[in-house]
Design a binder for these strands. Structure first.
Lengths: 150, 150
DNA sequence: GAGACATATTTGCCTTGACAAATATATATC
DNA sequence: GATATATATTTGTCAAGGCAAATATGTCTC
C-alpha cells in the first residue's frame, strides 16, 4: 500500500495532518521532477542548495534554522553535499567555532539547472489558486508560525 | 542547537519548507500540551485515536490513508496503541483479509480527556487568523492536495 | 585573567516512517 | 472451478532527522 494510495477520501479534519499530507506530496513531486533531470537529490538537499544559492555563504547554524533542522541533521546533510562536490566548508575568519558554507562552481551550476524544476512543481501544485490566494496562503502560514514561536 | 532555535529570521521563501516548519511547531506544541496532561503519546498516535473516536471503527488501510501513512507505519502504530490498551484489532466479518480497528473503553475515555488539548493548541496557533481566514487556509491546502494527487 | 556561561559544530543513539517482499484472502476471467 | 490479478496486513531493511553529550571557542563578570 502506497503512502497516499487514496482515491481522495473525506477531508482530513485536522490542520496538522493536512499540512503533513500537502508537504509530503510536494516533496514527492519535486523529487520526481529532479530525478527526471537525472539528478539524485532529496528534497532537503535541494532546499539547502537553493538557500545557499539565493543568500550566499552562511554558517551551518543559519542554514539549519532556515531549513528547520537541528544541528546534527545539518552536519550530515553537509557531509552528503560536500561528498558530492556541491559545497565546501570553510572556516569563518571572524569566529573560529563557526563554518562558512559556500557553494562550489559545480553547486552553483546545479542550482541554475534546477531553478526551473522548483518553479514548475510549485506552479503546478498551486495552479488552482489565484495570485492573491497564493499570497494569503503564505501569509497565513507565516502568521501561524510566528504565533507558535511566540 | 534546537530544531527551531530561531530568533525569527527571514521568511523561508519556500512553501515546502514553510509547511514543514509549521507542522513541526504544531506537533511540538500538541505533544507538549498532551504531556502536561500526564499522557505520553506522539502526534501520530493522538491523530489515530482522534480519527477512530470521530468516525468509529475502520480498517487499517482506511486509517492509514486518513493519516497519510503507509501500511507498514500503520501496523507499528497499531502495535503501540494496542499495547497501551487504547484499541483492539478485530477481524472484519465481511473480509477476512481486513481488520476492524476499534477503540477500547480506555481509548474512548482518553479521547474525551484529550479533546480539549487539540482544540486549545489549534486555537492558540491560529489566534491571529479570523474565522474566514482559517476556512480559507484549509480550503487552499485541500485544493493543493487535490491538484497534487490529480 | 580566571571562572562561569553561552554558542557552533560534531557524534552517538534512537524513533519514525518509507519502500519492498511475503502472506493471506478476494475477485474476475476463462 | 482454476488461474490470474488485485487488495489487506505484516515484516525486514533503511534513511532522515530529533535529542543529548562531547568538544571547541567566544563572551561576560568579577
Amino acid at each position: 500500500m502506497s503512502p497516499a494510495a487514496s482515491t481522495c477520501d473525506k477531508p482530513p479534519e485536522s490542520l496538522g495532518i493536512l499540512l503533513g499530507l500537502v508537504k509530503s506530496e510536494l516533496v514527492r513531486a519535486l523529487e520526481q521532477e529532479i530525478a527526471e533531470q537525472g539528478v539524485e537529490l532529496r528534497f532537503s538537499q535541494v532546499q539547502a542548495l537553493k538557500r545557499l544559492h539565493l543568500f550566499g555563504p552562511m554558517s551551518a547554524g543559519e542554514l539549519a534554522r532556515a531549513l528547520g533542522h537541528d544541528g546534527g541533521a545539518l552536519t550530515r546533510l553537509l557531509d552528503q553535499l560536500e561528498e558530492k562536490g556541491y559545497l565546501r566548508r570553510k572556516p569563518d575568519p571572524q569566529d573560529r567555532r563557526a563554518l562558512r558554507i559556500e557553494l562550489t562552481a559545480s553547486g552553483k551550476n546545479l542550482c541554475r539547472e534546477l531553478r526551473g524544476c522548483s518553479d514548475r512543481v510549485m506552479n503546478a501544485a498551486q495552479k488552482s489558486l489565484g495570485k492573491d490566494e497564493r499570497r494569503h496562503l503564505i501569509d497565513y502560514l507565516q502568521r501561524i508560525l510566528t504565533t507558535l514561536r511566540q
